[in-house]
């Protein structure tokens, strides 16, 4: 979801209407609302060793971060983290391949396209827990054991795939088919066309889809909770801690996992930006 479109350049000296200031204030207040509470837990996670889960800060330490790696209550967190990363990587890989292929397929009308489209919409708006419930029930009927990399993976895909598909629609909407016709005209085979023209041109969008799929899976809770089996993901571990933990360790975990998300998002955005810069032709020796 990106706000795009070339807007007409307006004279910067043109006087702003009063609505601009009203809406700018609203925008600022919204950003404060969005980031304020999150900032509070980032700050509190550096609470001193004697501090509690609310202000004031009693000193400043990294005690609560160290707590995560100490044996004890938090023992599951690091291993759950790596599980989450592994699961998110698999979800990301499958989502990209399947959504890009389906995006290509949806460029033509084909019998059944309407049914499949509404199936994807339904999968996206279905109350999350019910997806896990249905899959779990199915597994139980067949006497299969739910597991992270089977049932939970499947449950997450019912969420990331429709997301990926709709994102690919947006990507393809901006794609000029003349590029493909030109490639065909120049003698490229269907595979060469895909490999050398379509995919590279769409690469920024596809990387965006990959990032979305990764972070959605990495933070997913409601779909996987009933079907993760014995091995929990990080969000499931965090959920289990909410009721039991009364120390700022929970905030430290929150800070770390948000930092991971930010790293993934920031890294991806930088990567896409560099790619687009290259295309715009960053000063090369002529």
């Amino acid at each position: 979801m990106m706000v795009g479109g070339a807007r007409r350049a307006r004279d910067p000296r043109e006087k702003r209407p009063w609505t601009f200031y009203a809406l700018a204030t609203l925008m600022g207040a919204f950003l404060l609302f969005l980031y304020g509470p999150m900032a509070v837990i980032y700050i509190l996670s550096f609470q001193g060793p004697d501090g509690g889960v609310t202000f004031p800060m009693v000193g400043f330490s990294t005690t609560w971060f160290e707590e995560i790696w100490k044996p004890g209550q938090m023992a599951n967190i690091p291993v759950a983290f790596w599980r989450s990363v592994a699961l998110a990587s698999i979800v990301c890989g499958i989502t990209v391949v399947v959504a890009v292929a389906a995006g290509l397929g949806f460029r033509r009308r084909f019998p059944g396209s309407g049914v499949l489209f509404y199936l994807a919409v339904a999968s996206l708006v279905m109350p999350s827990l019910l997806v896990g419930f249905g899959i779990g029930l199915g597994f139980r009927l067949f006497d299969w054991k739910p597991d992270l990399f089977t049932s939970a993976l499947a449950a997450q895909l019912t969420w990331t795939l429709p997301f990926g598909l709709f994102a690919m629609f947006a990507v393809f909407n901006r794609f000029n088919r003349a590029y493909e016709e030109a490639a065909t005209d120049l003698g490229a085979s269907a595979f060469q066309r895909l490999r050398w023209v379509t995919l590279p041109i769409l690469a920024p969008g596809i990387i965006g889809v990959a990032m979305g799929a990764f972070t959605l899976s990495y933070d997913e809770y409601a779909r996987s909770t009933l079907v993760a089996g014995n091995r929990n993901t990080l969000p499931l571990e965090i959920y289990a801690l909410i009721s039991s933990s009364t120390s700022p360790t929970l905030f430290a975990i929150g800070t770390l996992t948000t930092a991971v998300s930010f790293l993934v998002i920031g890294g991806t955005l930088l990567f896409i930006r560099r790619m687009q810069r290259r295309r715009a032709g960053a000063a090369r020796p002529a």
Binding site: N176, A178, Y179, E181, A182, V197, P200, I201, A203, R279
Partner: peptide, 10 residues
């Protein structure tokens, strides 16, 4: 030769 030229941007 296409109207938009369709030069591969990458």
């Amino acid at each position: 030769m296409f109207q938009s030229y369709a030069l591969f941007p990458h």
